[in-house]
Every structure is written in C-alpha cells, then in structure tokens.
Simulated scan of single mutants.
Amino acid sequence: MQIQENNKINIKAKIIFILFFAVSFLMASSSMLAQKKYVIVLDAGHGGKDPGNLGNGYREKNIALKVALEVGKALSKNKEIKVLFTRKKDVFVDLWKRGDIANNAKADLFVSIHCDSHTSNAYGAGTFVLGLRGNKKNLEIAKRENAAIFLEDNFKDRYKGFDKNSAESVIGLSLLQEENLDKSLAIASLIQNNFAFKLKRNDRKVKQDNFQVLRETIMPSVLVELGFLTNKKEGRFLNSKKGQEQMGRAITDAVLKYVNNLKLNTITSESTIENTVEYKVQIASGKNKIPTNPYNFKGLKEIERVAVGKYFKYYYGNNSDYNQVKRSLKIAKTKGFTSAFIVAFKNGEKISVTQAIKMQ
C-alpha cells in the first residue's frame, strides 16, 4: 500500500514538473517573440540652414518636424516598435547621414516627411518610392528635395559626378533597393489610401522617382509629400495643429498596419514546413533583350533571362544551396559584375534572402 502511494506521489511530481516545464517554455517563447522590435526611422525633411520650401511664408522644415514628432509619439506607445528620428529639432542633417542612421539601426522602415510647392495652385498629398524612371513633373520634385546635397560641406567628394539637372544622375535604382521595392510600394499604398479615403485629401497617388535620401537607405522606404504650402488653403491646414495631427495619424495608422503585416508574414514563414527555395545571382537588368551566350556575359555560362514587364533580368548560378550560390556570386564579381547580388525564390515567387534562409 505504501509503495502504491509513493508511486502516485512520484507520478504527481512528474506531472507537475512537466507542466511547469511546458509553462516555462511557453512563457520563454512568448518573451522571445515579444522581444522583436520593429525599428521605424522617421525623417523630418530639411532643417537648420535648409528651410525647405517657404510657400505662403510657411516653413517646410518646421511642419515636417512637427508631423514626424506626432507620428513618433504615437508609434512609441506600441511596445513592439522602436522609433528613431534623423532629427528631433531644427538642425541640418546631411542626406547621406539620414540614410546612415537608418542603415546602422538595421531599420525595418524609413519614412521621410516633406511638404510640396508649385507655381500653380496645385494641392493634395502624394507618396513616393524610389523608382527607375519618373516623368518630368516628378523629376522637378526630386530636384527640389535633392537640392540639400549642395548645402553639405563635402558634397563634391561624396556626390562626385552628380548633376542636379541630369535625369541620369537624378533617376536611378540600386540593385539592393530594388529588392525592397515591393515592400516600399506596400507601405506607400497604405499611407496614400489613408490620405485619400480617411482624410479626403486630394489623391496625388503613389509615384516612383529618385530622391537622394531614399537612395541612401537599404530598407523599405518612402517619401511623403503632405501637401502644397504654396496653396493657401492647404498651407493653412498643414501649418495648423489639427492638420498636423490628422496627417500624422494617417501615417501612424499605415505604419501600424504595415508592421502587423510583417508580423503575419514572419509567423507564416516560420510555421512553413516544406519550402521549395532556390537562389540565383542577379548580374544585370535592363530593357535590352540580350542572347544568353557566354560571350555576352564575360564567359559566364547557363545564364537565365527573365522578362519582368518591359525589362529583362539576367540570373546566374541557380542553386538550392545558399553556400553554393555565394560562390557563384564571388565568381560573377571577379568577372566584373561588381553590382551582382543574390536573390531568392520560393515556388517561383521572389522572396527576401533572409526569409529564404530562415525557411531552410
């Protein structure tokens, strides 16, 4: 009888231990998930000696800063988000340094906030992502926002060859930034929809063009034009506390939704058991349809050409092993394709390399 009771006690003790271990594991797992911080960098355009545009006597640098601080204050209430600013007061910050702040912080998103101007009575809010090409009007906007380059102390060295009037200098898209284009377009659409449908602002759409501050970043990034200070009615709205709070809230809600989508994608990718992942080295892209013969690609063999819209992308070293594709990348670079980079696909759809590695 005593033996049976001792066995019962031992079984109860084991059950309690197992339950304790399970609860501890779940708590630890929850804690690990909670520790993930989504880093959002808010960039108030212009500042200090660079006032931005001065439509109707308003100062773009001041309005941009107030809206950025509104957004930062709201986002900081979310425990899963860490907010950083490129500036929190009226100081001049080099365009390259704004990007460096985000890059060094390994940010998940970069949002640059500005106000627009025009010689006409134009009005409305627009959101930009970095793009391959823009129309003449967008080029003029990019030139205005990029003008801060020439206020930097060492701009001649840092931006050697840059010509503010040249479309070739002003319009461009690095290979790494192209990787982030889909996510940039996603957050841009969320912001723009809030402006257009929630606040009923005139919808100037999501557009692509080259802003130097976006070129400096290596994560999804957008540049927001809140509206036109040169339009009297819109200028008054943007200069008012009510206007700044409303525009700030529209950006905040979009960022929160974007972060939530990132979380869902992370959970989905981590819970996927079977994944067909392949890596490739992208060595070139452009509008020209080039035969994939080795002599056209400095001796590289088995080049794959894929049509994407009006463009063609050229891949080398298709492999399911990440270490093998890294060797292919090294070979491509030694052949002279110095801008080559690794891309990843799951079941034929492009995904981030980081996500692909996690899946495997």
Rank of each mutant, 00 (worst) to 15 (best):
K8L: 12
I11F: 10
K12I: 06
A13Q: 10
K14V: 05
I16P: 03
L19T: 13
A22F: 08
L26H: 14
A28C: 10
M32W: 11
Y38R: 09
G52L: 07
G55I: 02
G55V: 04
K61P: 07
I63W: 02
I63A: 09
I63R: 01
L65N: 06
V67Q: 01
V67M: 02
A68E: 01
L69A: 07
G72A: 07
E80G: 12
D90F: 14
D90V: 15
V93A: 12
I101F: 10
A102M: 08
N103M: 04
D108T: 02
F110P: 14
S112E: 07
D116V: 08
N121I: 10
A122S: 14
F128C: 02
L130S: 11
L132G: 09
E140A: 03
I141V: 15
E145D: 14
E152R: 12
E152K: 10
N154F: 04
F155V: 05
G161I: 12
G161T: 12
S166R: 04
I187M: 09
L190P: 13
F195C: 00
R201A: 00
N210I: 01
T217V: 12
T217R: 13
S221Q: 09
G227M: 10
T230G: 11
N231A: 05
L238M: 15
K241I: 15
K241H: 13
E245N: 12
R249M: 08
R249G: 11
I251G: 11
L256T: 01
K257L: 06
N260S: 08
T266C: 00
V277I: 15
K280Q: 11
I283F: 13
K289C: 02
P291M: 04
T292S: 09
Y295R: 07
Y295C: 08
K313I: 11
Y322E: 02
R327S: 10
S328Q: 12
L329Q: 04
L329D: 06
K330D: 08
K330R: 08
K333S: 08
K335T: 02
V343P: 02
F345P: 04
N347M: 03
E349F: 15
V353R: 03
Q355Y: 08
I357W: 02
